[in-house]
Design a protein around this nucleic acid. Structure first.
Length: 255
DNA sequence: ATGGCATAATTGTTATGA
């Protein structure tokens, strides 16, 4: 079973690329973030033509998350329980696996209102997991977390040390989420680091490989132990009209 | 210290991202 996560930075702007990538890689489950589209305008039909069901928690202009799956999703849940006005979480069961797709707030700059919202949102996500899920069930928490877990996940750590993607408090918040009972599956397969999922559009960041790993596939122990590989599909950051994020792809063995 | 670039809302400019 192949599970992927991809911040597409507008699903409509990325539709041709997304469709070509789905046909090429044939993942079983895809968590999408930053749809930038309302539910009614989500391009479900062109994805259904390729054999994918969609469950969507959309929002006009900003945010928006979805789960695509080749088998029918069940038990769909949208948003945090405290009625977050921003569409940043969707969950569904696909087969035996509970799949959660999240888009953690960026945080803009340290000390800003948005930064406080980011930290609070991560704490609320931890509470959501504690209340609604079990670390003993097969579960993947995927998405754009806007946090590089440690300096192995940053090409130029000194440049990024004070950024909202790397500051100690957001790293601690991320560690708190993992401590609920999740394992970083890319780290499991590549503990040496040097794998990135996001490169700024500006300043030739991609050609210079000034990247950070901020998109993650986290799995409960029972599922992480069944993972056989994990990779970032860097090819999706190349060519015409790429997202600034590349997909993260994990393969799980069936038990 | 700031901008670089991209997207969606609109049609010239702003908000947001990371």
């Amino acid at each position: 079973m192949i599970i992927a996560t991809w911040n597409v930075n507008s699903v409509r702007a990325r539709l041709d690329r997304l469709r070509a990538w789905l046909q090429r890689r044939r993942p079983d489950v895809v968590c999408l973030q930053e749809l930038k589209v309302a539910d009614e305008a989500f391009p479900a039909d062109p994805l259904r033509e390729l054999g994918y069901h969609s469950v969507v928690h959309g929002q006009k202009t900003y945010n928006g998350v979805a789960i695509l799956s080749r088998t029918g999703p069940r038990d769909v849940h949208r948003g945090l329980e405290d009625d977050d006005p921003q569409a940043r979480l969707i969950a569904a069961r696909v087969g035996e696996v509970r799949v959660v797709s999240v888009y953690v707030p960026n945080g803009e700059s340290a000390g800003s209102e948005k930064y406080a919202y980011k930290l609070a949102w991560m704490e609320r996500l931890r509470g959501w997991l504690r209340r609604r899920c079990s670390p003993d069930e097969p579960l993947v928490l995927c998405g754009d977390f806007n946090v590089a877990p440690d300096d192995r996940d940053v090409a130029f750590p000194d440049l990024w040390a004070d950024s909202v993607l790397c500051r100690p408090d957001v790293r601690e918040a991320l560690a708190g989420i993992l401590a609920w009972g999740l394992e970083d599956v890319v780290r499991r397969h590549h503990p040496e680091g040097g794998i990135y999922s996001w490169w700024d559009y500006r300043m030739l960041a991609f050609p210079r490989n000034n990247g950070l790993r901020i998109d993650h596939v986290f799995a409960t122990r029972v599922l992480a132990g069944r993972s056989t590989s994990a990779e970032v599909d860097r090819d999706e950051r190349r060519g015409d009209k790429p997202s600034d994020h590349a997909p993260v792809i994990v393969t799980f063995r069936e038990d």
